[in-house]
Computed example of a mutant assay.
Amino acid sequence: MFRHSIRTLVVGLCALTAASQGATAMALAVPAGQYQATPATAPALRSQTLSDLATAMKGEAFAYASYSLFAAEADRQGHAAVGELFRGTAQTELNEHLRQAAALAGTVGSNAANLREAISGETYEHQVMYRDFAAQARADGDLDAAELFTEIAADEGRHRDAFRTALTAVTTGRGSIPAPPTADVVPVPAGPPKVKAARTRANLDTALHGEALAHARYLLFAAHARQTGNTALARLFEGTAGVELHEHFAGEAVLAGLVSTTKPNLRKAIAGEHEEATVRYPEFAERATAVGDTAAARYFRDTAADEAKHMTAFRQALDRLR
């Protein structure tokens, strides 16, 4: 199987452990503060604002997952302070920025609604996205990527089936919530891309962002399930989130060459934070202000300011390594 062959290419352990995931799940259960909004009380946001919030969530989820891997690499290289900087920034991206965007967008619904959303996403990935990616990678000669995409497609089918069973239990009271899956953790060391085709690289980028977002959304759904007293459903969402991150995202990260050594990782982080601080979030804030979505505009402005601080901290860390 691909997951076993990939271990011959890598050493060390991924820093994204199940224990840290559990801590994240509890952190995500905290109310979203000044940006808290629910479908019942919040005015409807314009479609462009909702689209911008969705883009923000995807970017913040990807930053969390990437920075966590960068932290592990910094630790392996003996740069403990940089590792702590990456970890702290990752937590801000997930537990503040993404959570606040999700609150504004009304991402979390009832347990049944959350399960239907999960089923829809897993069905698409199982039946369409990963099958297409596998066929394209095979045609382009990227056989490791084709094998990984095929395995992930099968995993997503199992996730869909488990969520369908859970939905029946939640809506009818018949049956029980399935046991959560266990992630087969894939180590992610520094290394170059292991695919050759531009199309495979683009598909890996799409997949990485999708898996990071699925991880974050499922933690939000898990937090809601716990708040409503459904601990079995919370465990199912948390376990699935772990597979999306520690297995799927990590396996794709190895093939994509996502992690470099610490100095290039810092440069990549600086470039990303600069774009968010100076272009993306200011544009989102301007659009939200123009249509009267004031809470969203404030969120975008505040997040831009945070990203500018992150950029400065990463630059200072890079300067200390020179």
Rank of each mutant, 00 (worst) to 15 (best):
T55C: 02
P39Y: 13
R131T: 11
I119Q: 07
D140M: 02
A145C: 05
G106F: 09
M57Q: 04
S110W: 08
R131I: 13
V30D: 06
A135N: 13
D75F: 04
A113N: 06
D52N: 05
E117N: 14
L94G: 02
E122Q: 05
A118S: 09
S51L: 09
E93N: 05
L53G: 06
L45K: 14
A65R: 09
G59K: 03
G106L: 12
L143T: 15
L94V: 08
E60I: 00
Y130D: 01
E125N: 04
Q36T: 15
T55E: 05
Q91A: 15
L98D: 00
A71S: 14
D140K: 07
H126P: 00
L69D: 05
E84M: 06
N111L: 05
L69T: 02
L98S: 03
T41L: 13
E122P: 02
A61E: 02
A37Y: 11
D52I: 01
R46N: 15
A101D: 01
T123C: 03
M57F: 00
D75H: 07
A118F: 12
A105C: 11
A63Y: 03
T89Q: 14
A139S: 10
N95C: 11
K58N: 04
A139W: 04
G33S: 11
S47V: 14
G121C: 08
A42K: 09
A90V: 10
P39R: 13
A146H: 09
E96S: 14
R131K: 15
Q77A: 02
G106D: 08
G109I: 07
T123A: 04
Q136V: 15
Y35P: 00
R46P: 14
L115A: 05
R87Q: 11
G88L: 11
A146Q: 08
N114S: 00
D140E: 12
E84P: 01
F86V: 02
H79C: 04
S120C: 00
Q36G: 09
R76I: 12
L115V: 05
M57G: 05
T49D: 06
E73A: 07
E122M: 00
L69C: 06
A61M: 04
L94N: 01
